[in-house]
Amino acid sequence: MNLKSFVKVGNISNLSDARYCAGFGVDMIGFNLDPQNDNPVALETAQEIMGWVAGVDLVMEYGNLPLAQIRETHQNIGTGYLQVNSVEVAQALATDTKVILKIHIDDANDLTAFTSEADGLSEDIAYLLIDCQDESLYLDIDQAISELELTIPTLKAFDVTADNVLAKPAFYHGIALSGSHEEKPGFKDYDELADILEVLEIED
């Protein structure tokens, strides 16, 4: 299958999600290795799942883990991309690794901080991923991204629904979605993820 937008699905923790997303033709799937985040997956489990999927770029999501630990782990894995939450860590890794920098905006101060440092981001960073849970900031973030005219492809990880995904502003390169916990092996209720991917599906 092909989709009408670039799509990354992160927080993959089970083979059902991985196969489902790969079958739909998403561009990237990511595995959360930071135990401080929700729904983390063991490195061994992530590697096992990666062995069963093809046709998608793989992303190891290191969150807030220390730079030294990320370097050591990633050298042993050798996947295409890694994702981190720290600007400093992303800058340090971007010269020799394909890096996704996740920016989580919790309040207006976070948005101000991001806009002030955006011009100084290394162009070696492969993608920016912008996330937010505060609905009151959604329009402000969209406006800020449009005005920054970023050269780094930017993925929208907030305010993405089946109803609005086709109206995604053109200044976003694509969207970022999230996998979910599997109740038991082989049993999944995809709900919103499925709804969004079905809207994006290009009919043959």
Rank of each mutant, 00 (worst) to 15 (best):
N64I: 11
I175P: 09
L128C: 00
A118E: 09
E117H: 08
H173Y: 10
D163Y: 01
M60G: 15
V160E: 02
T115L: 05
E44V: 09
L193S: 13
A92Q: 15
L129C: 08
I196T: 06
D134A: 12
S122M: 00
I12S: 01
S116C: 11
T161I: 05
P40A: 07
L150K: 06
A68K: 14
E48L: 13
F187W: 12
W52L: 14
D191L: 15
F171W: 00
D119P: 06
D140Y: 04
N39W: 08
G25A: 09
K102G: 09
G51N: 10
G120W: 14
T45M: 06
S16L: 03
T154G: 01
D191P: 03
A194D: 15
H173L: 07
E61V: 03
A176L: 07
A18L: 07
L3Y: 01
E72M: 13
D191S: 14
P40G: 02
V89G: 07
T95K: 12
A126N: 14
Y20S: 09
A108P: 10
L128G: 03
G174C: 07
I202S: 12
F24C: 10
Q83K: 12
P40M: 12
I12C: 05
T97N: 13
L82I: 06
S13H: 02
I100V: 10
F158V: 11
A194K: 14
E149K: 15
H74N: 07
